[in-house]
C-alpha cells in the first residue's frame, strides 16, 4: 500500500476561481459589459443597484458631450516618462489606437485619460499599501486628445501586476486604466487595457467580470512591431469602441 499523496489544501483563490467559472456560465451580458453585481469581486455586493435600471430616452443634453481642446491638454501630458527630472524605471512602451463609435466612425478631438501603477506594481497614491517601491520619476497619469482619425498615443512604462485585498493571494494582471468621452454623454466609458498573454487573467475577478471570451479579447492590447520604436520602446495597439447612442457632434463655438 503506497502512502497517500499529501492533499493540496483548497485556497481562497480556488473558491474565487470556481465562482468566476460559475458566473461565466450564466446568460451572456449585453454588449459584453460586466454585470454590476458580480460575486467574485466582493466590493460589488453593496455597490450594485438592486433595482433594475430605468430605461429612458437620452435627453437632448445627454445626446451631447463636453468639449475639450488644446488648452485642456499639454503635449507632454501624453508622455508619462517626461514628467520628472529623471527617467522612470521599467520597460518603456508606446500605447496607441483609435477611438470609434459603434458605427465605426472615429471619435475626433475627444479626451482620453489614463492612469496606472509603476513598473513595480505600485500606484503613486496614499491608499496603495503594496510594499513595492515608488518611482520618484513616475506618477502614472496622462491625457491626450484624439486626432482627426480618432487616434490616441501615449508613451509610458509597462505597469507591474499588483496584489489587492479581494481575497487571499489576489493579484491584478498588469493594466492601464482608460477614461473616454464620445460625442454624446451616453458614450462615456471607463475601462482597463490589459497586456497579451497574462497568466493572471482567469484568476482575476475584475478582468473575468467580463464573461464573454470575445468581449474579454476586446480588453487586451496587441503587441505591434510596427508601433515598436527601434532601440527605444515596445509598441502596443488597442482600439476602443464606445457604446451607447452616438450623436452628430454639435458645431462648437470654440474648440
Amino acid at each position: 500500500m503506497s502512502p497517500a499523496a499529501p492533499e493540496r489544501r483548497r485556497t481562497e483563490q480556488d473558491e474565487v476561481t470556481d465562482a468566476i467559472r460559475e458566473a461565466a456560465t450564466v446568460a451572456p451580458q449585453r454588449g459584453g459589459h460586466p454585470d454590476r453585481a458580480y460575486t467574485p469581486y466582493r466590493s460589488t455586493s453593496l455597490r450594485a443597484p438592486s433595482q433594475p435600471l430605468v430605461v429612458a430616452p437620452a435627453s437632448l443634453l445627454e445626446q451631447t458631450a463636453p468639449v475639450f481642446g488644446a488648452k485642456d491638454v499639454r503635449p507632454t501630458d501624453a508622455d508619462l516618462t517626461v514628467h520628472s527630472t529623471g527617467e522612470p524605471l521599467g520597460e518603456r512602451i508606446v500605447v496607441t489606437g483609435r477611438v470609434l463609435d459603434r458605427d465605426g466612425r472615429p471619435v475626433r478631438h475627444q479626451l482620453v485619460e489614463i492612469w496606472q501603477a509603476n513598473a513595480s506594481g505600485r500606484y503613486a497614491h496614499d491608499g496603495d499599501r503594496h510594499p513595492a517601491p515608488l518611482d520618484p520619476h513616475f506618477t502614472g497619469g496622462g491625457r491626450c486628445l484624439t486626432d482627426d482619425e480618432g487616434r490616441y498615443r501615449f508613451v509610458t512604462i509597462k505597469p507591474g501586476a499588483y496584489p489587492w485585498r479581494n481575497h487571499h493571494n489576489a493579484w491584478r494582471p498588469a493594466h492601464i486604466h482608460f477614461s473616454l468621452f464620445g460625442t454624446a454623454f451616453t458614450q462615456r466609458l471607463v475601462t482597463q487595457m490589459y497586456f497579451p498573454g497574462d497568466q493572471l487573467f482567469h484568476l482575476d475577478p475584475i478582468f473575468s467580470s467580463v464573461t464573454d471570451e470575445k468581449a474579454q479579447q476586446r480588453l487586451i492590447a496587441t503587441y505591434d512591431h510596427d508601433t515598436t520604436v527601434a532601440e527605444w520602446a515596445l509598441g502596443y495597439q488597442w482600439d476602443i469602441v464606445l457604446d451607447g447612442p452616438g450623436a452628430t457632434p454639435p458645431d462648437p463655438d470654440e474648440v
Binding site: W115, H125, G141, H177, V190, L219, V241
Partner: peptide, 20 residues
C-alpha cells in the same frame, strides 16, 4: 457596420492622480 463595444471596467480605488 456595427462594432462590438469595449467592455466597461471599474475605475478602481486609485483614480485620484488620474482623473480629478
Amino acid at each position: 457596420m456595427t462594432l462590438d463595444p469595449s467592455p466597461s471596467q471599474t475605475v478602481g480605488p486609485f483614480f485620484a492622480f488620474g482623473l480629478p
